[in-house]
C-alpha cells in the first residue's frame, strides 16, 4: 500500500503546503430558542426575544457560518424539545451542519431530532443523570453525532458542571466530566461558562485550556464573545476547535464577516463562500 504524510496513498500537491499548515477552527452561531422564538439572555437568565430563528440561521449560513447550534433553553425544565419544526424548516434550505440540544433524554429523542435534519445532538442534563446515555447514542448514531454540552460555574477554585442554564449543580467537576464524556463516546464537547454568557466580556480561557488538555476530541467554546479580540484570544491561547457565538451576532454588534476576517488574520482556514 502506498502511503504519504500519514493518511492516504496519494502525494501531497506542493502548491498546497501552505494550506496544509493552516489550523481548522469553526465559527458556530448559537441560537437559543424558546417556543418559536430566537432569544438571548445574560448569564443564562433574563431572556429577550431576538427574532425568527430560521431567518437568522439562513443569514448566518449564507454569511459563512461553519455550523449552527440550536438550543431549546426551556426544554429540560418542561422535559420536551420544541425545536423539531424549526430544524425541519431550516434543514430544507440551509445546507450546513446543525447541532441541536435541549431536553434530549433518550435514543428515541435523538433519532427524532436527526430525522428532522439535525446532524448532531447535544446532551447535558440527561447525560449527567445517566452517563450511559452518551455511549448508547454514540453506539447507535456514531460519536460524530454525539455532543456533550457542559455548563460550568467556578466555585472555590474549581469548575462545577451545571444543568438547566446554570441553575442546578450536578455534583460533578466540569473538567473531569468532559474527560469522562469523551471516554464514554462523545465526539465533541461544548464548554460554556455560565458567568460569561451573554456579557460579551471574553471567553473563559482558563476553563477552555483545562478542558482541552483533558480530551482529544474537538472542544467548542461558548459564553463570552463580544469583540473580534476575544476570538483572537481564544484561537491563539487555546487549542479549542470552535467558538460558539450568540449575542454579539444576534444584536449585530459583529457580523460573520468580522469574525471570518479575524480567523484569517490568525492564520486559520476560512471556508470560501459560493
Amino acid at each position: 500500500m502506498t502511503r504519504t504524510a500519514g493518511c492516504c496513498g496519494n502525494a501531497l500537491i506542493a502548491s498546497d503546503v501552505i494550506a496544509a499548515m493552516q489550523r481548522n477552527f469553526r465559527l458556530i452561531p448559537r441560537l437559543d430558542v424558546k417556543m418559536e422564538w430566537l432569544i438571548k439572555g445574560v448569564q443564562m437568565e433574563g431572556w429577550r426575544k431576538v427574532g425568527d430563528p430560521a431567518a437568522f440561521a439562513a443569514d448566518y449560513a449564507l454569511a459563512g457560518a461553519d455550523e449552527l447550534l440550536f438550543m431549546d433553553v426551556v426544554a429540560s425544565l418542561y422535559e420536551r424539545n420544541s425545536l423539531h419544526e424549526i430544524i425541519r424548516k431550516v434543514a430544507s434550505s440551509v445546507f450546513i451542519p446543525m447541532t441541536v440540544g435541549g431536553g434530549i433524554r433518550t435514543v428515541a429523542d435523538v433519532s427524532a431530532m436527526l430525522a428532522c435534519g439535525a446532524d448532531k445532538v447535544a446532551i447535558n442534563t440527561a447525560a449527567t443523570r445517566n452517563p450511559d446515555l452518551i455511549t448508547e447514542i454514540a453506539n447507535r448514531f456514531g460519536s460524530q453525532a454525539t455532543v456533550v454540552s457542559i455548563e460550568a460555574v467556578k466555585h472555590s477554585g474549581s469548575w462545577m458542571a451545571m444543568t438547566d442554564n446554570g441553575r442546578n449543580h450536578t455534583g460533578r467537576d466540569a473538567v473531569m466530566w468532559a474527560k469522562e464524556a469523551a471516554e464514554r463516546g462523545a465526539g465533541e464537547i461544548i464548554i460554556t461558562s455560565v458567568d460569561r454568557d451573554g456579557l460579551g466580556s471574553g471567553y473563559e480561557i482558563e476553563l477552555v485550556k483545562l478542558v482541552a488538555s483533558q480530551v482529544r476530541v474537538p472542544v467548542v467554546c461558548g459564553g463570552g464573545l463580544g469583540t473580534t479580540g476575544h476570538l483572537k484570544e481564544l484561537v491563539t491561547q487555546t487549542d479549542a476547535s470552535a467558538a460558539s457565538i450568540a449575542q454579539a451576532l444576534h444584536w449585530k454588534k459583529l457580523g460573520m464577516g468580522d469574525l471570518r476576517s479575524t480567523l484569517a488574520e490568525t492564520g486559520c482556514f476560512v471556508r470560501k463562500l459560493g
Binding site: 504519504t4 504524510a5 500519514g6 493518511c7 492516504c8 496519494n10
Partner: peptide
Amino acid sequence: YAAMMSNPQDVAAVAHAGVGGIT
C-alpha cells in the same frame, strides 16, 4: 477514519489535514 488506497489511480480528490493528507 479515512481510506488508505491501494491504487492511487482510484483517488479522485485529497484534502489536507494538519501536516498530512486525507482521501
